[in-house]
Design a protein around this nucleic acid. Structure first.
Lengths: 241, 241
DNA sequence: TTATGGGCGTGACCCCGGTCACCTACGGCC
DNA sequence: GGCCGTAGGTGACCGGGGTCACGCCCATAA
């Protein structure tokens, strides 16, 4: 079940020898902290491993920790009582979650589940809070981060209302390629996962992806999607009557 | 201040005598500032009026100002090329918008339109930024605010994917009543507006609202919706197979 | 009073996309 | 090799809800 084999092909396994501090130095959220600050930060930290599929935190958890992904990928999901999953986001190395509960002290609003074996750095509320309050640059990073996520969320809402399924897929592909900075999307995404990210069924995603391939807009090898005709996708991701 | 919100039906002349400072003191975002800070703040401020229907700011605007609603109501909307509107939010007295662009310096991501004649307090980026950086309490308020909005946005995404139209309406009604703190929703909302808030058509909203009334779950007078059977709405707003 | 315009109620039609059902393809693994 | 478990393809069916087309009611204006 734990097929570690999926990862190495795509992702350079991060040097395991990296110290926590060195790793923290690469986390965007903490950019702007002095080395000494990072050191003291690192000491307040625990590291935990989660096997693929395990629930890292769940809705209504009181939640008093911030998590930073050190390795692996996790998904943030809502789950309806009928079991259907909506994926709000997929987080990779260097990204973090759990900060909402730290800020407003409301219970968790979603589940977080490990998509692969993952290792997370955990930070308790008070320690984190002190850091935010004492260093404006972290507060500012956090603001920027939340702003960004809010824009994405609003975009997503717009997409769900205004676009049909192929349009939503086109938009997702463009988003993902923008994230990676190239026309390649390396992440291994099953149609099922895509479906849950855009609020559609697996079958409909399959059909739409095939259309895109047949039209020559994208090409799919093993676990990599290449955007061949960005322009066409952009226009497909547009509302038109 | 609350009673101003009830007024919109008849041309709310806000207490004109209130000074800007007094008003700012009531704005949640600025809670925690000393009187003297508010004074200096107020001096950096302009006030502008917008007639009903006017566009206060539009997508892709570079945007370098923060706005606080002093009177009236405004809506934050996305507009597809086919003209369909998605309402991301409705903001009333004391609420603010435009902070995203101040934080991450990205262009605006949505339009803001006056739903009624409105008066707004405008603050330039640099002035605001200085305030945020110098007073942690404002930064923290802002973080809390963004967190809250992010939760709402995620909820909305979940609702759009998991719930049918009546379910989404039920959820919206519960949200609005929670905001007002009672079982009454005073805001005057047309079916059209509700439709745009939940991503549905006016007709479908009409039919669903009628069902709710027939079932005795809500009752509608002039411009006020009363929740008569909260429990039923809660369960209708739930996913169930 | 009548005109005008916005909001609401309702029926008819029909299409996108969800669901079900089944098949194939491609790994790992015994 | 043969067996599974998971991912992807595809057809058939049908239902939620969008769209269109009215008609009605109630403001405010003339």
């Amino acid at each position: 079940m734990r097929n570690q084999a999926t990862a190495p092909a795509l992702r350079p396994t991060p040097a395991v020898t990296t110290t926590t501090v060195d790793f923290l130095a690469t986390v965007p959220l903490l950019r702007g902290l002095q080395r000494s600050e990072l050191d003291s930060f690192a000491e307040l930290t625990r590291e935990r491993s989660y096997p693929r599929g395990s629930v890292i935190l769940f809705e209504n958890d009181p939640g008093d920790s911030l998590f930073v992904v050190r390795s692996g990928r996790v998904k943030v999901v809502l789950i309806g009582e009928d079991g259907r999953e909506v994926i709000l986001g997929v987080l990779g190395v260097g990204q973090h979650f759990g900060e909402l509960a730290l800020i407003d002290e409301q219970p968790r609003s979603a589940h977080v589940i490990a998509m692969e074996d993952a290792s997370l750095i955990v930070l308790r509320r008070d320690d984190f809070r002190k850091r935010v309050e004492s260093s404006p640059s972290v507060a500012w990073s956090l603001l920027a981060e939340l702003s960004h996520r809010l824009r994405r969320a609003d975009d997503k809402i717009g997409g769900l209302v205004l676009l049909d399924v192929p349009g939503r897929i086109a938009r997702l592909l463009l988003d993902l390629s923008e994230e990676s900075g190239t026309d390649q999307i390396e992440k291994s995404l099953t149609h099922q996962t895509i479906a849950q990210m855009i609020g559609a069924s697996r079958e409909t995603v399959s059909r739409a992806m095939k259309e895109f391939q047949d039209a020559g807009w994208i090409s799919v090898e093993r676990r990599r999607i290449s955007l061949a005709n960005r322009q066409a996708l952009v226009s497909r991701a547009q509302v038109r009557e």
